[in-house]
């Protein structure tokens, strides 16, 4: 296994509010990392700093060994073009899908490939169909998003991200907006991706997913990684009271013995 993503001393403030207070994390290629933490602990902010949806206040991010940005007098500076390229190398899936409503499913999956990567139409089309196949929605290629269920929308959003051949995938509570009976199909798709060797950072409250799929679980608390470890041990025997309280709050979750 080789390192694919490294986060060093990541800080992020919104005005006076310091949300991330020094995050260090190295992710190996093919790893699935689940990030847990209570509301407001900075999980989304952390993910969004990785692909520069937010710019970090401080710290460094390396993707596949490349330092993102240029260091000048101890401060990182970023060019917008560089960040666009970086974002095209990292897939992101949102809680509310954010599919493009005026485009068919297929066009949604084509858009980034053609506009951002400049792929030829035919190649992009083959790629798009392959990704839709992968998430089990090839037969919906010519539907508009409004005609899909939430679970299907989310799988299209995953296909849209996958079509860019991302080096890392970020998932931010992607099942939180779904009806309970639709959560399973999305988690299954994610599990399949993890098993195929995709590198994934997932913010989720699905502890079952964390337990069965993650290679590593992080517990984020007040802007720092309070604990991390293998899911089997950390979810059963957390070191800190804070994490134990957090896990107790998820009373529906029964750990398999």
């Amino acid at each position: 296994m080789s390192e694919i993503l490294r986060i060093e001393n990541l800080h992020k403030s919104f005005d006076d509010l310091e949300v991330l207070k020094g995050i260090d994390l190295t992710v190996q290629s093919g790893e699935t990392v689940v990030i847990l933490g209570s509301s407001g602990s900075g999980k989304s902010t952390m993910l969004r700093c990785v692909n520069f949806m937010e710019s970090p206040t401080n710290g460094k991010i390396y993707l596949n060994g490349d330092l993102i940005g240029t260091e000048r007098n101890g401060k990182m500076t970023y060019k917008e073009a560089e960040l666009c390229t970086l974002r095209s190398r990292i897939g992101m899936v949102f809680q509310h899908f954010n599919l493009f409503p005026h485009m068919t499913v297929l066009e949604n999956v084509l858009e980034g490939q053609v506009i951002v990567l400049g792929r030829a139409k035919m190649e992009a089309r083959d790629k798009a169909m392959a990704q839709l196949e992968r998430v089990g929605l090839a037969e919906k290629a010519f539907e508009y998003p409004s005609r899909l269920s939430g679970g299907q929308k989310q799988r299209v959003a995953i296909a849209r991200a996958l079509a860019m051949d991302p080096e890392v995938m970020l998932f931010d509570e992607v099942t939180s907006a779904l009806d309970p009976e639709l959560v399973g199909e999305v988690l299954k798709t994610m599990r399949q991706l993890a098993e195929e060797g995709m590198t994934m950072l997932c913010v989720t409250h699905e502890l079952g997913f964390a337990y069965h799929v993650a290679n590593r679980v992080l517990f984020l608390n007040e802007g720092i990684i309070l604990e991390q470890g293998e899911p089997q041990s950390i979810l059963k025997n957390p070191d800190t009271n804070r994490m134990r309280e957090f896990l107790d709050g998820h009373s529906l979750f029964k750990l398999p013995d």
């Binding site: 917008e80 970086l86 095209s88 897939g91 949102f94 599919l99 005026h102 858009e111 506009i115 951002v116």
Partner: peptide, 25 residues
């Protein structure tokens, strides 16, 4: 919805590309 800007940005589109292709239509 702000999510539309975010989705365009997240696949690597520039502001102008997102505006032209996603938002304005």
């Amino acid at each position: 919805d702000r999510g539309q800007w975010e989705a365009g940005k997240a696949i690597g589109m520039t502001y102008n590309q997102t505006l032209r292709r996603i938002i304005l239509p």
